[in-house]
């Protein structure tokens, strides 16, 4: 009985949904604030993401005629559920809900589900902008996903395990994977930017080109869930990167470990924000070219090095 209660508590509060929700809003705020500071502005107050979320929940929910209503209602939930589930396998400060051999694959799969949901949302919501945005999202998915997968395969091969917590734990004594596989980290970082559709890869939702992309026709609750799923995805993606490449919490569950983990996460977030403000948005064909001509070969080289030298 106590096991069930603690399991429920784990999933709902820490490091489950409640914790992720708070983290997502906090990271989103930090990101906006840092971006604003770099641009010479002040940025939103700390409660801003929460206010936005509540306001959207309380707004009217409309869809245009011709949109697939059930799918449009379901897709944001699928997207959110996928990233929340992925989070259960990723150690946070050394603490993980469930871990098994091969959960890295599951995590990667769950993290790419939102991209498909995003594409379908664009395709099914009966607006030209969202259709264009959706097809761009799909093209972009193919450009970043392969290098991203290969970059994350490197550490797994090195450690000899496909479990996120093992990979994270294996670095506690020795070197961070970042130092062993710098190219892999850079590729995974770039892949993450693509995954999160952040500037300079915010191609599917390019404001000045196609409105809000696939989300153009969404409003109210659905939009709130979409935003939340993207914000949670940011958090989960950063956790994953920290665990796989930056040594996680440094082994074990301790206060210093958790603090260290938090600091590393914030550093990755800062890096994401800085990359976001430094560059102009690329065009989808430029991203595809970059993905296949530069990133994929580099990932291949990194993998070969790992297999030949490390393995």
């Amino acid at each position: 009985m106590r096991d069930v209660a603690s399991a429920v508590l784990t999933i709902l509060v820490f490091p489950g949904f409640g914790f992720l929700f708070v983290c997502a809003l906090a990271f989103h705020w930090i990101d906006r604030r840092v971006t604003a500071r770099f641009q010479g502005r002040v940025g939103p107050p700390w409660f801003q993401p929460f206010a936005d979320f509540v306001k959207l929940l309380a707004k009217e929910d409309v869809l245009p005629v011709g949109a697939h209503e059930r799918a449009c209602a379901l897709l944001p939930m699928v997207s959110l559920a996928a990233v929340l589930t992925a989070a259960l396998h990723i150690p946070v400060g050394g603490y993980v809900v469930t871990s098994f051999e091969g959960d890295l694959i599951v995590v990667l799969f769950l993290l790419s589900l939102p991209a498909l949901a995003y594409f379908l949302a664009g395709w099914l919501s009966a607006s030209v902008f969202s259709v264009v945005g959706g097809s761009r999202a799909l093209l972009q998915y193919f450009a970043y996903e392969v290098p991203f997968l290969m970059a994350l395969a490197g550490p797994a091969i090195l450690v000899g395990s496909w479990s996120v917590s093992r990979i994270s734990g294996a670095q506690s004594g020795g070197l961070w994977t970042l130092l062993v596989q710098p190219i892999g980290f850079v590729l995974a970082f770039i892949g993450l930017i693509g995954k999160l559709k952040r500037s300079p890869f915010d191609i599917p939702k390019a404001k000045s080109e196609i409105g809000a992309g696939p989300l153009t026709e969404f409003s109210g609750r659905k939009l709130a869930l979409w935003h939340l799923s993207l914000q949670v995805k940011t958090v989960v993606g950063i956790f994953l990167l920290v665990d796989v490449f930056l040594g996680g919490s440094g082994g074990g569950i301790s206060l210093s470990g958790v603090t260290l983990f938090g600091v590393k996460c914030l550093l990755v977030l800062l890096a994401l924000s800085v990359t976001g403000v430094l560059y102009a948005r690329l065009r989808i064909d430029q991203l595809a070219t970059m993905g296949w001509r530069v990133l994929a070969p580099l990932a291949l080289v990194q993998l070969l090095v790992v297999v030949l030298v490390g393995g």
Binding site: G40, R41, V42, P45, Q48, V62, G211, T216
Partner: peptide
Amino acid sequence: LTPRFDVERLGILKESSPRHAD
């Protein structure tokens, strides 16, 4: 929206789709 006045500090965002606007 720009640095001098920066209405984002008041929570105001300029949206591109009517569906997102208040």
